[in-house]
Design a protein around this nucleic acid. Structure first.
Lengths: 201, 201
DNA sequence: CGGCACCCGGGACATTTGTCACGGCCAGGT
DNA sequence: ACCTGGCCGTGACAAATGTCCCGGGTGCCG
């Protein structure tokens, strides 16, 4: 019996997946969580063989949680399941020690099979996505550029960002300008979108 | 036997829902589509009793499709299923003649029951959401304000928006300024976010 | 040690954005 | 006939944003 942990914030999706996977004769869903910061605790209790993690979760990113699991529950294989096949996500997932990366398009039938594959030690990745991730290259943004960009997603002004990062306004402007240049865009909003699309957030 | 049409763009979600609903003894999924502009055609062929529609679909919004169905397949009840419980969405769904409005949080078990309820002629709406929709009041934005705001979502400049709407730059500025005022925000980006959160897009 | 990249900041400048006051046009309702 | 509200535009102005150039500090690597 494969013991499975399921982390997904959308209640209906989580319930549906749990039911479907539970119907497989060799899979047992031993834990379900709706928040990223509950993953490690649940895994320590339930001792799953495989963790199926969404990326965009409240509390803690599924990618961060994957890294945590590698350290604290190393026997547990991690399978990332996400809406967006962003190259940067795939890259980060691999760096966090994930054994597989699936997007929520594509048929449900693949899911159970993917679980079995990672448990056999295989790595499962959509080939087209892998190619995109390689051709895209690594994240060119420095840490602070990323911070500044991330702090500006919800329409914050330079002053807001400077305050939240404890920086001077001049510094923030420089970081943003640099990020805009590196993304090849014309303003903050475009830069944010471009960075998000690449999974650089 | 309840004949059901399912419109949902995320392949995995669509497949999971189809399987789950198909397992109900009194429900039969007679059509599945992944695009909004395929809904009416599919309904004309499959003649479903209930259409379960996501809102954010490629091609055509599920809300628009709901209005189309009311005209072209009036016997078909419409049940909206969406990720975001925005007040404006609920309002528009009701105006489009929807018989129910569900959010993708909350348990899967409710789903089949909601289908049966709308078929009995009942209206199913989350009570908390209904309250929010009423307290929020109607959309205060005029048509052109909405257009200008919608055209600025992906970081377009004033010049871009003016070109895409065939307007003068001054006019666009005035609309945006007005929209910013009505949303009580400080700039375009915040206004877009606020309008989206309300379902005013 | 000398580069190099990242971090942090200042100053000056052009451009963009947001605001305000003001026109005119047209449709609707009183 | 008048008023109201949406639509479209202009001009002027202050504020925010983006760019460029400059400085200094740190730590890492060859």
């Amino acid at each position: 019996m494969i013991r499975l942990l399921l982390a997904e914030d959308q209640g209906m999706m989580r319930g549906a997946l749990a039911l479907l996977l539970g119907m497989e004769h060799d899979i047992e869903v031993v834990a379900q969580v709706g928040r990223g910061d509950e993953i490690v605790d649940a895994a320590l209790v339930a001792r799953p063989d495989v963790a199926l993690l969404d990326i965009e979760l409240p509390g803690r990113s599924g990618l961060d949680a994957a890294a945590d699991l590698r350290d604290e529950v190393p026997d547990c294989k991690v399978l990332i399941l996400t809406t967006f096949g962003r190259p940067g996500y795939l890259r980060r997932a691999m760096e966090a020690g994930a054994a597989g990366f699936l997007v929520k398009d594509g048929p449900v039938e693949d899911l159970a099979e993917a679980v079995r594959q990672v448990l056999r030690g295989e790595t499962v990745i959509d080939p087209a996505l892998a190619a995109a991730a390689l051709s895209a290259g690594p994240n060119p943004l420095t840490g602070r550029e990323r911070d500044a960009l991330a702090a500006s997603v919800d329409g914050a002004t330079i002053a807001d960002i400077a305050a939240s990062l404890h920086l001077s306004e001049s510094t923030v402007r420089n970081y943003l300008s640099s990020a805009i240049g590196k993304t090849g865009t014309r303003n903050r909003m475009e830069a944010v979108r471009a960075a998000r699309r690449q999974g650089w957030l």
